[in-house]
Amino acid sequence: MPSGSFTFGDRPAPPAGPLFAHEPSRPMNIYLPIAEMSESVLVLLGMGAAVGFLSGLFGVGGGFLITPLLVFTGVPAPVAVGTSTAQLVASSVSGALAQYNRNNVDIKLGSVLLAGGVVGTLIGVEIVRILRQAGQFELFLALCYVLFLGVIGTLMLIESVQTVWKARSGVAASSRGRGEHSWVHGLPLKMRFHRSKLYISAIPPLLIGAFVGFLAAIMGVGGGFVMVPALIYLLRVPTNVVVGTSLFQTVFVAAAATILHAGTISSVDLVLAAILMVGGVIGAQLGASAGSQLKGEQLRLLLAGIVLLVCVRLGWDLVVTPAELYSLAQPAGAP
């Protein structure tokens, strides 16, 4: 009798009997090395394309949609956040470059925002690590998303409904009056920002940058939805410079967040990120051309609807009694 050391060599294994129900091999599946799971390439490409389409359509980063979508697919929450920061670099760099070529970027203001952003990112990544050890990261992420998406979705809904209603009733939407000075202008450390025609304290942009960097690190979002209104309403940055400067800052903050996520908790899955990026850039182009067919108010109403839907879906899981009260995790310290 041979002693148990024989192998089949290259001979194909005999066909399986009616034993274990085995999954049929799915040739379109791809193994994600960091997420440690196998997922259909088509599903991931479709997700990237759908989010890219929305970001092209609405001009938003789409990070706030990709992270929850990845979590719904079964990707571990930290990997979902880390990977979507990498995807964010790809989706924001082309826009930032286009804005830069049109001289719509205030490099000096962007750098100040960025300096704050890097600090915020460092704090955010550290908080992710602590919460992950405490087992509360998923909850924290869900709460952050519910809060932000809820607030932003509601504000957008109110604004777009008002605009649509005013347009219907024939009253021109009044442009927001610009205050001469606000409390922002009373702070020390004044700097001159030539491109934005501003002479203001460096503290508010630093704080705004830090907050946005913090959001990028914990939620995997670009933070354009916080940055753009803050620059317009708090700092009075001219509208044509706002988007470019925000995108400029997003590229670097997302890059910093990616490196920190990869460096501290190894949570960036390059295979997953690459697929999302490819889907994303295709979707974004389609979305941009579709966007030119629709009116601004209709677009905002639609986006508000999507944002609120994601919010409700995430909030629902927190409130409804779960079918399974237990969950398994790798203990702290293990990869």
Binding site: A86, Q87, L88, V89, A90, S91, S92, V93, S94, G95, L97, A98, V251, A255, T258, I259, L260, H261, A262, G263, S266, V268, L270, A273, A274, M277, V278, V281, I282, Q285
Partner: peptide, 17 residues
């Protein structure tokens, strides 16, 4: 690895645009 991820993302974004 993080730096490589960023470079990949930058390249993808720029090539695509």
């Amino acid at each position: 690895y993080g730096i490589a991820a960023v470079l990949l993302a930058l390249a993808t974004g720029l090539i695509a645009s």
